[in-house]
Design a protein around this nucleic acid. Sequence first.
DNA 1: TTGAAAGCGTTACCAC
DNA 2: GTGGTAACGCTTTCAA
Lengths: 336, 336
Amino acid sequence: MSVTIKDIAQVSGVSYSTVSKALNDSPLVKPDTKKKILQVAKDLGYTPNFVAKNLVSKKSNTIGLVWPTIEQTALSTLVTEINNQVVKNNYFMMLSINDTNHAVEMFNKFRVDGVIIFEGETPLVKTFESTLPILTYGVANNNPYPIIDVNHRKAIYEAVSYLNNLGHQKISYIGYPSHKDKRQIEKLKGFHVAMDEIGLKTDENSTINTDGLTWFDGYTATKKLLQGPTIPTALISGSYDLSVGILRAVNECKLKVPEDISIISYDNIPQMARLETPLTSVGVPIGELAEKMVNSLLDLINKTNSFPLTEVMEPVITKRGSCSPPADVKADERFS
Amino acid sequence: MSVTIKDIAQVSGVSYSTVSKALNDSPLVKPDTKKKILQVAKDLGYTPNFVAKNLVSKKSNTIGLVWPTIEQTALSTLVTEINNQVVKNNYFMMLSINDTNHAVEMFNKFRVDGVIIFEGETPLVKTFESTLPILTYGVANNNPYPIIDVNHRKAIYEAVSYLNNLGHQKISYIGYPSHKDKRQIEKLKGFHVAMDEIGLKTDENSTINTDGLTWFDGYTATKKLLQGPTIPTALISGSYDLSVGILRAVNECKLKVPEDISIISYDNIPQMARLETPLTSVGVPIGELAEKMVNSLLDLINKTNSFPLTEVMEPVITKRGSCSPPADVKADERFS
DNA sequence: TTGAAAGCGTTACCAC
DNA sequence: GTGGTAACGCTTTCAA
């Protein structure tokens, strides 16, 4: 049985409503009394009961984050960043790694103030009536909830343009366009749109399906590509994890980055700089993204503004020296 | 404003205490009434308010898991497994990735039924009086809370014995014995104890400090080792992530596993079998560990037995073909 | 089999 | 400034 404000009231000889005020640092209570009450609370080892507090105040100061796929580096980083933002705003964050519908149902029962959902493989169905503010992180597409989209399509589009401007013609995209993960599909679309626009043809050598998102999937696919007849001059990787494997394959094939082959990776996270070969990357900087997400959810909770249903964040390219003009262009330049 | 049992009561024309009983499937309410009430609840889109429920029942059916370092593969896997066990027992699980003391304080305020703590870098201090059942996962050592220890020391000890029995003399341990992470220190101790016992000397070539726990740390350290003058015939890796890097380095040095070099890794997780070269590994099988942890915490919560303060689980070796006798022994055998 | 009422630990409002 | 008390949504006696 734990200590309650009534216990504190009894010991310090005041009413428990006064204790409540003191504990909440209300200006309505005399400094002396407050000080005494606080001391007693401490002596008694009082821990506020949030359950009771939340019941009456109808507010939990807590947000829930649904995160069904815990094994992708970039997402882990995003979760960590979101948590920092949440704490900075004096909220708590709870994670659930269950499937989306189960997790949301649970958070709803616990009356968290809001929920962030990482769109996963299970499509998000609006299964229940609720006023629970929900923000999703995924691909905008007449979604039932407000969504933060990071424009995956444009990110890869920009990557292609960037490489092409350097003079690359033989560009391959290495990714995993699973039909279940919209984000991955968008990336591939960006690739096709850009290539079409430039007038470059795409074939099975320019779009490599890794059939998975682990580093090893990236490794296997790239190894196969590089041992084939046509080696591209530039590679676009679909994620950080894939890049780890791509780098390994490139290395084993004795190719130098960027001299022999240029690489640009999706996922704009700090870890890119700490790879054996730091990679130029494209995407929304993770810190910015986290801040946007948390602020948006908080706005949604406090209804401080009419937050648009869809917010698309634009990717930026962060250069880390892994891209240069292709060998032939460099050669040409020597004579020009 | 959400639907409450009073709303249901009004619509179905019964008292709200009857509704409560019906919702809890009490045998005290007539099947007909129950059915009707359930229907009304569904029509109204009722979601039980756990906050209120928990307040009166003093039970949340929820456990909290403190997980400050979310970026280690083996730990992600363990968390996933624990979650499965928790769900199987009809509990909920909430994660916190904050530092231990902050997280426990939060879980305590929310009155979760129990907490599992992954010992991290911050030493665990008993900062508050509380009856909150807490189970830690770490290294047994007059810990303030019940602990599940997986005998890291013995795991590496067994690995050394196993390799030595195969005929290896030149064995290196590759790990990160950071002074802040007891688990890592224990592993190194196991190595030394075993080597001493066998009568093999250890030097800076047999204990490699990776200075980090990512795959790249493993890669760098191993690369350096293999380019040195003395190449061991067998390697013991401190973790799955390190093994990924070790394998890469071994590969780049054109060494074949197990022909040229044997490798055994700590962390008995299924991913070991899916590596490019499946690795024999040692440790407590992750599923078993998760089950033990959840059952122990639940026992602690329900006080069904006097759970010992310390429970040490024994490691097992799972063979996956990455170890064989060293080349010289094999050669000897040919003539014997 | 159903209903009434107390109570869980708080906050918030209204008296004093 | 401080105290009394209703209310939050639910479970759990106890009575009917």
